[in-house]
């Protein structure tokens, strides 16, 4: 025991001393074999292999950092070209967005208005339905109902958004036109409504997670006072899970703001400074799609404009995501 301990320490100290050497001359086994015994050399080769593998794995992990960096760099670089032509003041305060016209205007406000309007319609649908669904799943549903419902919600999340775009344009809009005949074929209302249904599972599952994180002892405390399920859900569990539920909403806004295909297909592609959902209007994402569909020369102002629009979109979603994660972290720490 003592002998082996001393032996191990010896090997360790030799390895340690040799490490700098190996780092410089990893490809010179002769150096190693001439200085130490074959058994130790084998250990060293193993060690080198382990370090190389670790390095490769680390490079793979760094790809995430690289991707973020590349996104920011590309958006900034191309936008920089754009802002050489367009002043920031015009960009943020201009009320017209017509970069591809002869008489070009570069005010992002109409696109932001379209993005916010469709997102608000979506949230008006998704927040109540998603929250009620989450409360039901977490506090009312039997184990079996939950086991069946949650996978179905996951399936709903997996449906490609282009299919929802079709649904909004060719199913929901005609349906709404029966009730409201003046509704144009492209409108933010049906795009927003469909987007809302799309986001429901997202809110439901994040909010449900938050509610289930509320300790059982708190529910027992409420039931022990003679409360019903509904009273417990409304008066104790929901307040206790507030930060998680709010995080679900914020992350959902980020989703809605970045959603592309539904709005590109169903909300129209005409920039329109309005908050009236019964009108058609382009969102930031729809504008990017519209430009990309055409054949714009590289490095033209139109080409650069989609990066400037993309930068605004990225900043908006990043902001919401960061706030959402901070809020969510808060509830995780709470219990």
């Amino acid at each position: 025991m003592t002998a082996s301990f001393i032996g191990n320490t010896l090997i360790k100290s030799i390895t340690l001393k040799l490490k700098p050497l190996m780092d410089i001359a990893t490809n010179s086994p002769s150096l190693i074999t001439t200085t130490i015994s074959p058994r130790l050399a084998k250990n060293l080769r193993r060690d080198i292999k382990g370090r190389v593998i670790e390095f490769i794995l680390m490079l793979a992990a760094l790809s995430a950092v690289f991707t973020t960096f590349a996104i920011v760099a590309i958006l900034l670089y191309e936008s920089f070209g754009f802002f050489k032509t367009v002043s920031l003041v015009e960009f943020f305060t201009g009320k017209e967005w017509t970069p591809l016209f002869e008489d070009a205007h570069y005010g992002i406000m109409p696109l932001v208005a379209g993005t916010l309007t469709t997102s608000m319609v979506a949230l008006a649908v998704a927040v109540p339905i998603g929250t009620i669904g989450a409360i039901y799943l977490s506090e009312f549903a039997s184990h079996k109902t939950r086991e069946i419902t949650k996978p179905i919600l996951e399936l709903l999340v997996g449906v490609p958004t282009i299919a929802f775009g079709y649904f909004a344009l060719l199913f929901v809009t005609p349906l709404l036109q029966k009730i409201y005949p003046d509704l144009p074929g492209f409108n933010m209302l049906s795009a927003g409504l469909v987007m809302g249904v799309m986001i429901v599972p997202y809110i439901a599952s994040v909010a449900e997670d938050a509610m289930r994180a509320v300790p059982m002892s708190m529910r027992e405390g409420s039931y022990a006072m003679g409360a019903t399920r509904f009273q417990t859900a409304l008066r104790v569990v929901t307040p206790a899970a507030t930060s998680g539920i709010v995080a679900a909403y914020i992350l959902a806004i980020s989703r809605a703001v970045g959603e592309t295909m539904v709005v590109a297909v169903a909300a129209g592609q005409q920039p329109n400074l309005t908050f009236n959902p019964t009108e058609g209007a382009a969102t930031i994402t729809a504008y990017i799609v519209q430009v990309a569909m055409g054949d714009l020369p590289h490095a033209s102002i139109g080409y650069q404009s989609i990066f400037a629009a993309g930068l605004v979109l990225f900043a908006m979603t990043l902001g919401f995501n960061i706030i959402g994660h901070i809020v969510r972290k808060k509830y995780r720490e709470q219990y």
Binding site: P215, E220, G221, G226, Q231, R235
Partner: peptide
């Protein structure tokens, strides 16, 4: 209960809980 399990409410509302229920 074994471990104190107050609700995420004010002191007043915790005590008033049973009455509100």
């Amino acid at each position: 209960f074994q471990k104190p399990n107050p609700f995420p409410k004010t002191i007043f509302e915790n005590v008033a809980y049973g009455l509100r229920v």
